[in-house]
Design a protein around this nucleic acid. Structure first.
Lengths: 227, 227
DNA sequence: ACCTCTCAAGCTGTATACAGCTGTGTTAAT
DNA sequence: ATTAACACAGCTGTATACAGCTTGAGAGGT
């Protein structure tokens, strides 16, 4: 009943925050492939005009996750099997570079963060929750980005992650049982590597688990489509 | 004096064409580092409103080549030595992937294009021309992109190229004598590899000559700044 | 029943007006 | 002479109105 708490302005939305919000929704499948995104609706929701919405969408376009056609609208792209393969083969190659191109020192803060993620991942086995799974992966991704000292590689790693994420997360709903122990193992191995200040190992671990993820995608997406 | 030829509308500028034009100017150093780009001026020049200009600039921003600050303006970024190093080390790693991730078949058209580039490069020795040098490299880059079948790698290769180009081309004005024979050798070796349908070799050749280019940058940019 | 044409609804693309921010130069007080 | 405050010029950021494109529904002819 406090009028102030109702009318209080949340942090004003910047183009960047809108960009991040939309991107996260695409990853979380709140915006599913094929769905139409109307600039006017998003503008109303975020409480801004179409201008900043258009700006945010324009930046997402180059990630190849949405497509805007004049007179029609903006739709979330359905990635072709070929594109998915392209994203994954590239990620497989980029992963080892995390180790070879990075010189970041691992601090206790990093170790705390991965420890937290491990606990949350183990909790996933009890309470199987799609959103939690995605958020844990998001934060793991953020942690890894913080370890990549090469700014260009970091940018590419981010881009490839977001292109893969929406596909990859769709698998969880189908094969969550496989995904959760795999995530826990990945986190545990990463923890060991971080404790040893071994970024080379971090890169290889990433490479391995991206491979596992890609295998699951091939099993559950590609095979189902061809049968 | 033909009124038609004066009033004839050139192809109407799209956001993409404006984006490409501005990006090329940055690479060609028509827009030099530190220079301020005013949206209103660009809008007047391209005969459009600020809206599409802003859209184009927004897309270039993520290449880390320009920076826009509210109330101040948009300036062409001066890449720090660290950023330059990041771009080059990443390009060195990406180059071999051209070969390992590509399955494109080389056609006579490709061979014609590289033959043309070789001739034009040899002509550079007679008429040393900075713009021609840049344009030859641009077209070589385009040719290589056409050979990369992995769409994600192609995107990253492009991005890294544009980030490197403006720095790299600046060297030509200082050390054109070194750059021209190096370019001719690179083109000739690429021609041989293409004739053999050897994309793996193409990747390694790129890797080698990017290394040469980086060495020149270190000599002429980094050394000069520290002495 | 079917095909075609037309038109209108609804979206994105663009132009324009205005709000807000920043740096600079000027002015006044000390 | 120096410094601090202030106002203004000029830029980007946002809102809004309008133009242009695309699609689908419906009317009308066959």
């Amino acid at each position: 009943m406090n009028a102030n708490s109702l009318t209080i302005e949340e942090t004003p939305h910047t183009v960047q925050s809108i960009h991040d919000a939309i991107l996260e929704r695409i990853c979380l499948l709140d915006f599913h492939p094929g769905q139409q995104l109307k600039e006017a609706d998003l503008a109303a929701e975020f409480g801004v005009s179409r201008t900043p919405i258009r700006d945010a969408l324009s930046r997402i376009t180059h990630l190849n996750l949405i497509e805007t056609r004049n007179g029609v609208g903006t739709v979330v792209k359905e990635l072709s099997n070929q594109k998915i393969a392209d994203v994954y083969t590239t990620r497989l190659e980029l992963a080892p570079l995390i180790g070879t191109l990075s010189t970041t020192e691992i601090t206790p803060v990093h170790l705390d963060r991965i420890q937290d993620l491990i606990l949350r991942a183990k909790n996933l086995e009890v309470e199987k929750n799609s959103r939690s799974y995605v958020l844990i992966n998001h934060e793991l991704h953020q942690l890894l980005c913080d370890l990549i000292s090469n700014s260009v590689l970091r940018s590419f790693w981010r881009q490839a992650y977001y292109q893969a994420a929406s596909v990859w997360y769709r698998i969880f709903d189908i094969a969550g049982e496989d995904s959760i122990p795999s995530l826990i193992n990945e986190l545990t191995e990463l923890q060991s590597a971080l404790k040893n200040q071994d970024l080379i190992a971090v890169g290889h671990i990433q490479r391995i688990y991206i491979g596992y993820g890609y295998t699951r995608i091939q099993q559950y997406l590609f095979d189902n489509k061809t049968k």
